[in-house]
Amino acid sequence: MAGTAVPRPRTRRRGLDAERAEEYRGWLRQMILIRRFEEKAGEAYSLGKIGGFCHLYIGQEAVAVGSLAALRADDYITCSYREHGHALARGLSPRAVMAELFGKAAGTSGGKGGSMHLFDASLGFLGGHGIVAGHIPLATGMAFAIKYRNTDQVAVCYFGEAAVNNGAFHEALNMAALWKLPVVYVCENNRYGMGTALERASAIYDISERACSYDMANEVVDGQDVLVMHAAMERAVERARADKHPTLLEVRTYRFMGHSMSDPIHGHYRTREEVEDQRKRDPIAVWSQRLIEEGIMDQAGVKALDKEIVDEVEDAYRFADEAPEPAMEELYSDVYKES
């Protein structure tokens, strides 16, 4: 099984819709932005400008970009601690996200959250969360609030495949199905929970089957193809918004980097060959190739876009580097809300 994480796309390949060219280019832009941002974050980490844990999203960009593109501005999003990419795809500014990684006052959480705790309540981006599976009930609660208020918002929860063995996952999915809550659970199956392969941790291989226990809609999605990801997410979001039914999406993807910055790219738990093999389906290459083939972009256009993004990321880095530290009074602020 090893090395075969990415299934053949289920959707039959069709031509791209020329009228959506701008949207397609936007996806590529976001994916490259995440890639360049994460590369820069890795560099900053290695220079000691970012501390603590730092989990990079390189390799999984199509998942956040394709799925978040299917959401509305008033939907709620929660993520695990590997959430830089989701934050950027949701529209948090690279400057604010980089500043948060640097622990600066201009960061998304004023430097008090860090890499694992990015928030922007104004965008419905309700956190990166550091306890595996601990945030799955939170998204379920947000969906409960949507139902309580009888609006047509959707709550979305991102987590890794290792979270599905945790009780919080099952407790949350049971209630979501029982109460018919408008929530989409996006399981990013990158095949490894830290260094433990899926098949060494889970009694069943297809995570989507877990949904069957709760009579919940589910789908296996090719997470390396942004178009496929987007289409699957559109179906799930529609099911939540219109039919008030939750969905579990098992998105097959791959992390090209180590679990965190202190983990080697392959280490003892996967082979160099496997990583190199997976890199052949780099989601950015897959999508830019597609856009070129379909005449929506050309090579020069992709290169120019990349250059523009590199400059944007450099600007974010400079901004974060030069931004002031939080004031020392902030140590004691926001522990409680004073009534």
Binding site: H135, L138, G141, A172, M175
Partner: peptide, 19 residues
């Protein structure tokens, strides 16, 4: 259901968005 972790988390999630 008898699912303390789950409904505590549901409550917290609902509170995060204003209930």
């Amino acid at each position: 259901p008898i699912t303390e972790l789950g409904f505590a988390g549901v409550g917290i999630g609902a509170a995060m968005v204003g209930l």
